[in-house]
Each structure stands twice: as C-alpha cells, then as structure tokens.
Design a protein around this nucleic acid. Structure first.
Length: 481
RNA sequence: GUCCCCAUGGUCAAGUGGUUAUGACAUCGCCCUUUCAAGGCGGUAUCGGGGGUUCAAUUCCCCCUGGGGACGCCA
C-alpha cells in the first residue's frame, strides 16, 4: 500500500511551500488509496515549540489536508514525534558504530569552523576529511573515558557514484567523492535530521517520499544511510520549489508566506488549495478551477513540472474571487465574512437577514472576505460620509442635485422603498416628468444614500437600506449645501 | 567556488520530430451597463544562444549562458 508522509519541523508557521508539499502528498495518497502520515520533526530542541506545532496542525486542517496517522489520531501518538524515539535512533547509531559503519568524531565545533573557513578562503568546497576515522581504538577509548565530547559520523564510500531514480527528475547521479562523512548524532546525543528521517521513513514503511527539490542533494547522502542500515530506500519524488518575485526560494523575506496569513487576509482554503495545485502540476485537460476531490482523481506524479514556479498573488486573488462567487449559500458566506466585519469594528444594528442581504449584494465584487467591511460600511453605520470620488460626483451635479433629491425624497416619503422593482418604476416615472436624465439622477441618488460611487444596483441599494435612512442621508446632505 | 537540478509569452502551465505552438492570470481594446464588479468578444505577447542528429527540430544529443538549490552538531 502507498504510504507517504509530511514531516514539518515545529519551528515556525506552515508556509506556502510546506503546504503545497503536504497537498501533493495528500492527493497522491488519496489517489492511490494509501495513507497520509504526519510526523513532527522536533529534533531541533532550540527552536521547536508547541505553539508552532499547533499552528501547523491548524493550518493543515483548515486546508482540508487531514492526516490518517499522526498527532491527535490515536491514544498514543508518541511515535509521530521524533523526540519520543530517541532510543530507537540510538539503537541504530550504536549498531552502525559496532559494525564499523560509523565512527566517533572528536573534532570540536571550533575546529570544524576553522576548517570550513580555510576551505572558503581557498575557494574550495568544505568537506570533512574523515580524520577521526583514523583514530586508533585505544585512543578513542581513552578520550571516551575522559568524557571528550564527540559526534557520530557515518562512513561514506570514497569511490563510485550514488544514483537516485527520482520520479520527477529521472536519474540523478552524484559522485561519492563529493560527499563527506556526515554527522548523524550530535555531541549532545541528539540525532540529526538526515539520520532520523531515514530511520523513521523505514520504520513507518513510507513507500514514497515527496518533498521539495531543496532536499534533492540530501538524498544521495541519505541513500548511504539506508545502505548502512540495511534498509531499502523508498521511491523519491522531488517537486519543484515555489519561488518569490525574485525567483529565489519563497521565504519570509518575500513577505507573508504563512498559511494563517492567507486565512487572515480573507482567502478561502479551497481557493488556496486550487491555486497551489497549479504550481508545479497540471491536470491532463485544460481545467484550472477544480476541487481537491477532482485533483485527487486526476493527480499523478508524472504530470509534475520540473521547473520552479513563481507565486503569483494576482492569480490567487482572481481564484479566490471565483470561489467566493461560487458560494451557493449566502448564510455560509455571511458567516465567513462576519469575523472580518467584526475585526473592522463594525456592528450590525439590524437583523441577521439584513446582514445576509448585504453579503449577497456584495458577493460578486469580493476578491477576499477581508474586503467586505470596507465595501459595506455604509449599510451598517448611521452616516455615510462622501468618499473623494463621491464628492466629485456631487459637485459635478451641483445644478440638478437639489431637484433630484427633492423628487427622490418625495418618493421615499410617499411610497416608501418596498421593492427594487417598485422603486425603479417610481423613480423613473417621476424623474422623467421632472425632466431629469437617468445618468444624472442615478449617480446623485447613489452618492446621497451611500456616500460612494461604487456599489450594488441602485434600486436594490435603496431597497436594502430602506426609505427612512435614505431620506435622512439625502436631507442631511442637501441641508449642508 | 564545488556538486546537483532547471529553462515555452510578464506569471502559471499544455504540447509535438512536420501544429496557424494551446489554456488560465495579468495587460490592452470593444460590447453589456445606473456605478463597481461579473460576463461576452477580440488583440498584444513565448519556444535563451550556439553547435550537431535528421528530409524536417520548440521537441533528441552536446556545449554555453542564465536561474535556482545544496554544501550546518537546521529541517
């Protein structure tokens, strides 16, 4: 059975790159009726936090990337945290040591830094020379007895090539001569990523490792760990990176890349998922708007693109608008808008139905949920002060505005604002007899009742606001000159 | 610097040994229209360069160039 995993380290937020990797893993697993495992790689004690773990889990849930195995999925989920498996890693490390496939390295950080700087000065690639492998056994024992700190390094063959058959990239060959004996256990006894990832993937029987291309050069190193441990490597698929506007790997310096930030900015998870799907993958038809279920059906690694993809906010914005417009339930959309409405400090003095009516009126205009309060404030506030554009419109119609308002107010007072159709009929009739053109009165009324030049259809706008508030705003405006 | 990966419009992608090189976003124009959107129609715009292979290369091979990634007791 296909089994894949997403293995974030809880040292920060779930960012777009990680989310996209999780998405590809998820749909690959679902497509193959396999399992999607979540594993927390917390071997970096310094930077791992519980808060960031919670946030990662939240982000994944929000995106709809629920995991089959992992944290919160069973009574005992300790095996999905690497810090709970230290004894397992130690056992394997000791075994490698005993078998002579690894050795203790007594070089201090300082010494290594020095070597690294020397290499840099000579413009060569730093490569650990394996000097500690040559330490005689009794000498090593002596240092051990003296409690000299040491790391454990794995022996990597000096000759030959390491070949990876990558599902996305094909055959990737690396000369072993460029590899060095890497550290698998730190001086404090904590194993390092390259080691634990191999042990865990093997233990969990992961069949396919789908991860970012930034791991490609690590992979040949990991292959040697698999070999030393006697494990069969899984299949690898290195997916292209997501790039910032400068075409370098998307990171914090490109601005907000955390999934939660997109949520807070009013994006819908289905829009974000759909957009991310298109970054490095395409369906075999020309569809661009599709659900996760459709993606699951169609997904295959063969159709993963090789080149990195720049993250295009404009397209995401467009896609988000598509999903907002597709919402069939106004109630649902209203509930989604509400947090943004409240965050903007607005209050709804009327009924829930009124709120929903406004949402329905704005639905087609929204690119993000966060735009809702800005576009809709005049529906909820007592006053509707004129925007700059509205002032211009008001001034431009200085000649006719007084008359327009009189006619309009008269209609409101005598016949009310019961329905958009009725309002339209009344206004058209009366304005025509007053000899005022639609282009004139439409704009003047809109500005007077909403303070804005943009908004829903005028008659729906008036109907929704109601006669009372329209009259109040119009009279106040005209009395102010 | 060394190693690895990559290269189709501004962006994301499709594509084939012979095509008017396709779609989406963006952009421009027109239409619709009471505003803004949405929608409709149309336009501009792409195979990085050089060598091969071939009757024929955007497609296959090599080189160059360009971009990216990795070179941690981070993951």
């Amino acid at each position: 059975m296909v089994k894949v995993r997403f293995a974030p380290s809880p040292t920060g937020f779930l960012h777009i790159g990680g989310a996209r990797t999780a998405l590809f893993n998820y749909v690959f697993a679902k497509h193959n009726r396999g399992k999607f495992v979540l594993r927390i790689e917390d071997t970096d004690k310094e930077r791992s936090t519980k808060e960031s773990e919670e946030e990662i889990l939240d982000s994944l849930r929000w995106l709809g990337l629920d995991w089959d195995e992992g944290p919160r999925k069973s009574a005992d989920d300790s095996m999905y945290y690497q810090t709970n498996r230290l004894d397992v890693y130690k056992k394997h490390a000791d075994r490698l040591l005993a078998e002579g496939k690894a050795y203790r390295c007594f070089c201090s950080k300082e010494e290594l830094d020095l070597l690294r700087r020397e290499a840099e000065a000579q413009k060569r690639a730093f490569k650990y020379d394996g000097r500690c492998a040559a330490i005689p056994e009794n000498e090593a024992k002596k240092r051990l007895a003296e409690n000299t700190p040491y790391t454990v390094r794995i022996k990597v063959p000096r000759d030959g090539d390491t070949v990876i058959e990558d599902l996305v990239r094909g055959r990737v060959k690396t000369a072993n001569s460029v590899l060095d004996d890497m550290i698998i256990v730190r001086a404090d006894g904590m194993p390092v990523y390259n080691f634990v990832v191999v042990v865990d993937d093997a233990d969990m029987e992961i069949t396919h490792v789908i991860r970012g291309e930034d791991h490609l050069s690590n992979t040949s190193k990991q292959v040697h760990i698999y070999n030393a441990l006697g494990f069969t490597p899984p299949k690898f698929a290195h997916i292209p990176l997501i790039l910032g506007p400068d075409r370098s790997k998307l990171s914090k310096r490109h601005g907000e890349t955390a999934v939660v930030k997109y949520r807070e900015s009013g994006f819908l998870p289905e829009a974000l998922v759909n957009y991310m799907a298109l970054l490095g993958w395409s369906p075999d038809d020309e569809e661009t708007v599709f659900s996760m279920e459709e993606m699951t059906e169609k997904f295959s690694i063969e159709r993963v693109h090789k080149a990195g993809a720049m993250f295009d906010n404009q397209k995401l914005l467009w896609m988000n608008g598509v999903y907002i417009r597709e919402k069939k339930s106004v109630k649902e959309l209203a509930a989604l808008c509400m947090p943004f409405f409240e965050a903007a400090g607005l209050k709804n003095p009327r009924s829930a139905e009124y709120f929903e009516k406004v949402v329905a009126l704005q639905q087609e205009k929204l690119k993000t949920l966060a735009e809702f309060p800005g576009l809709s404030a005049y529906f909820f506030n007592e006053d509707a002060p004129l925007s700059e554009d509205a002032k211009k419109t008001w001034e431009k119609n200085a000649e006719n505005r007084k008359q327009v308002i009189e006619v309009f107010v008269n209609i409101m007072k005598t016949r009310g604002a019961s329905s958009a159709a009725q309002i339209e009929a009344d206004i058209k009739a009366d304005m025509e007899s007053a000899g005022i053109k639609p282009k004139v009165y439409m704009h003047v009324i809109r500005v007077a009742v909403s303070g804005s030049t943009i908004g829903p259809g005028l008659f729906e706008l008036v109907e929704t606001l109601g006669a009372e508030i329209c009259v109040k705003r119009a009279e106040k405006l005209i009395s102010n000159g």
